[in-house]
Simulated assay, not measured.
Amino acid sequence: MNRSKAKRVVGILGGMGPEATILLQQRVLATVEATDDSDHLPLLIDMNPHVPSRIAHLIEQTGEDPGPCIGAMAQRLEAAGATALAMPCNTAHHYAQAVTSAVSIPFLNMVDLSVVKAASRMQPGQSIGFLASPAVQSAGVFDEALNKASMQAVWPEDGQRMLSIIREIKAKGPTAQARQTLGEAAHELTTKGATLLFVACSEFSLIARDLPKDFPIIDTVDVLADAIHDHTTANEVPL
């Protein structure tokens, strides 16, 4: 069935980090069965690698607040014609209010959407194991959504080890050491009673498909890609 061209376009708050933003583009691309360029979904992308460090602000408590910069990016994307916004950085969702208060268009909140998807697969009281930056844990990025869904969080014991492989991936790209460390963290979380694993760091999303396939996993970047697809195509009308 042919469909009219989508009139909606999602604006991407990107650059946190650049590879993760490109990965989101690839995942959005994969949501479409295309036979020609025009079948794909339009995106507006603000690729800004100069957003102040979320780690410096949340963990080291020495850096500039990224919120105003992220809010300004949101305003630029809305002015450019975006009909919704998305951000592929899990940690940056700590600053989601800076986005929503700056614009009048919807924000496709990757955190909330991912917890809703997990809740459809789990029973209340069960635990999600988080493969994420320690900043996600310390800032409580997922806490409100998990509480609403009556679900628990399980975290790796060594948060600094997780942070070190995030920095390694940012500096060197996916490495064998990063893959090994992420796999070991996944095993640790399953032994702690996690029913399902969240890949909740977009650097980890770059290597998530190398994780063992014998345990249920939700990659938050995949959830966001699906939400972008759904928003963009929601007003398409069969011809």
Rank of each mutant, 00 (worst) to 15 (best):
S164M: 12
K192S: 10
L206G: 09
R167V: 12
F130S: 03
D226V: 10
L224G: 05
H94Y: 15
V154W: 07
R167I: 12
W155F: 15
A194I: 15
R161T: 13
T190W: 06
S138L: 15
A145M: 12
Q160P: 03
G159R: 07
S114G: 01
D210S: 15
S127Q: 08
R167D: 02
P106N: 09
A176V: 10
G125R: 05
T190Y: 05
V136L: 06
K170H: 06
F204Y: 09
D158A: 15
C201E: 05
Q123G: 06
A118C: 07
S133C: 12
S104H: 09
Q177E: 13
E184S: 11
P124N: 01
D158M: 11
I218K: 07
E144Q: 15
D219C: 12
R121Q: 15
V221C: 05
L108F: 04
A119R: 11
T100A: 02
N147K: 10
A96P: 02
R179N: 01
G125L: 13
L189S: 04
A185W: 10
A225T: 10
M162W: 06
V154Q: 10
V136D: 00
P124L: 04
G159F: 11
G159A: 10
I218V: 14
Q180W: 01
S205L: 12
R167H: 03
F215I: 14
